[in-house]
Design a binder for these strands. Structure first.
Lengths: 187, 187
DNA sequence: CACTTCTGAGACACTGATGTCTCATCACGA
DNA sequence: TCGTGATGAGACATCAGTGTCTCAGAAGTG
C-alpha cells in the first residue's frame, strides 16, 4: 500500500501550511514539536515528510516563493500602466503571500539560494518601480530600493494582519494599493 | 576598585547596542557568544552584566521602549495639528528607534510585560490617528488598527534600512512621513 | 476483506547553546 | 604606584531541541 501521490502531497502541503502559521507567530523559536502538533501529525511523521528542520524551511521557502512568483507572473504587471501593474502586484501578493509571511519571521541569512529566490521575486517589482519613476507615475526623489522597502513594509504588515485574520484580503490589498500609490505618487 | 557607575553603565550600554545590532540581523538565532563577540567582551562578562539571555532581552526591550517613548513624549504630538504630529512622531521614531528595530526580529510572545510596553508605545499613536480620522485629516475607510499597521510597516522597514546604513535618518523620516501622510490622507 | 505501508507514541542519542565557575592577568580609581 | 575588583579564557554541567528508531495499531488500497 503505497500512498497515492495525491494524498501524500496533500499531507505534505498541510504540514507546510501549519509550519507557515507557527513560524509566522513564533519565528525561529518555533520548535519542530510545535509544528508537528499544529499539523496534526506526530513529530516522527513530520520528519518522515521533511527529514530535517532545514529541509522543512527549504520546502516552505520554495512553496512560498513559487506561489507568490507565479501569481505575480500571471498578473502581467509589465503589460499595463504602472499604477495598474502595482495594483495587480499587490493583489497577487496579498492573495498568495500567506506562506511568505512566515518567511519574514525567520533568519534567512544562512539559507542557500535565498538571494537568488529573493532576486527572482523582487526583480519584476523593481523593474515596475523603475518604470514608474521613469514615466513620471512615481516620485523620483527616493531610490528605487527605498520605494521597494516602503512597499514591502506595507505588504509585510498587511500579510500578517491577513494571516491573523484581523483583515480581509480585499481590504488589505486595497489599503496597500491606495496608500502606496498615493504616497509614492509624483507630486 | 569598584567601577564608576558611568563606566559600568557605558559598558552595559555598549553591550545593549551590540545586542541590538546582532539581533536585528539574526533574530532569535543570534547566540550569546555572537553578541558577546560583537560587544567586544567575553561571554562570561556578558553574563556578569546580564545574568541570562532573558535578562539581556529584557534590558534591551526596556531601553528600546524608553528611548522611543521618551522621544515621542518630547515631541508634543498632541499639541499640534495631526499632520505635524505625525511628522514629529515619525522623526522621533526613526531617530531613536535603532534598538527597536532589533525587537521586530525576535519572538516576544513569551515575554513579560510586552503588551503593557507595546500599549504604552502605541496608545499615543492610536490617539493621534483617531484624532486624524475624526478631524478629517486621515481617511476613515480603514480601521485605526489597520492605519497603525501600515504606519508601523513603513517604519519597521525604514528602521532596518537606517540601521543597516542603507538610508539616512533624515531621508528615511521624510520618506515615511510623506508616503504615509499622502497615502492615508482623506480624499 | 486482506495485505502492506503508514503512523503515533515514546525511548534514546546527540549537540549547540545557555549558564556557571575558576584563576591568572588586566585595568580602574584613589 | 598600588590594591582591588573586573575581565578573558577556558573548562564544565545542564538541557531543550533535533534527529533517529522501534513496534503495535491504524489506515489506505486493490
Amino acid at each position: 500500500m503505497v500512498r497515492q501521490p495525491a494524498l501524500h502531497d496533500r499531507i505534505a502541503a498541510g504540514i507546510l501550511d501549519a509550519a507557515a502559521a507557527v513560524l509566522a507567530e513564533r519565528g525561529d523559536s518555533a520548535s519542530m514539536a510545535e509544528i508537528a502538533e499544529a499539523a496534526g501529525v506526530a513529530r516522527a511523521t513530520l520528519y518522515r515528510y521533511f527529514p530535517s528542520r532545514d529541509a522543512l524551511i527549504q520546502g516552505l521557502t520554495r512553496a512560498a516563493f513559487d506561489e507568490v512568483c507565479a501569481r505575480i507572473a500571471d498578473a502581467g504587471i509589465d503589460d499595463v500602466p504602472v499604477r495598474e501593474g502595482l495594483a495587480r502586484l499587490v493583489r497577487g501578493f496579498v492573495t498568495a503571500g500567506g506562506k511568505y509571511a512566515a518567511l519574514t519571521e525567520i533568519d534567512k541569512s544562512r539559507m542557500e539560494d535565498v538571494e537568488e529566490l529573493d532576486r527572482r521575486l523582487t526583480e519584476p517589482v523593481r523593474e515596475l518601480l523603475r518604470r514608474g519613476v521613469a514615466d513620471g507615475t512615481l516620485r523620483d526623489d527616493l531610490p528605487v530600493d527605498v520605494l521597494l522597502g516602503l512597499l514591502t513594509g506595507l505588504l509585510r504588515n498587511v500579510l500578517h494582519m491577513v494571516a491573523g485574520q484581523r483583515l480581509g484580503v480585499e481590504q488589505g490589498s486595497a489599503a496597500v494599493i491606495t496608500v502606496f500609490l498615493e504616497g509614492a505618487r509624483r507630486p
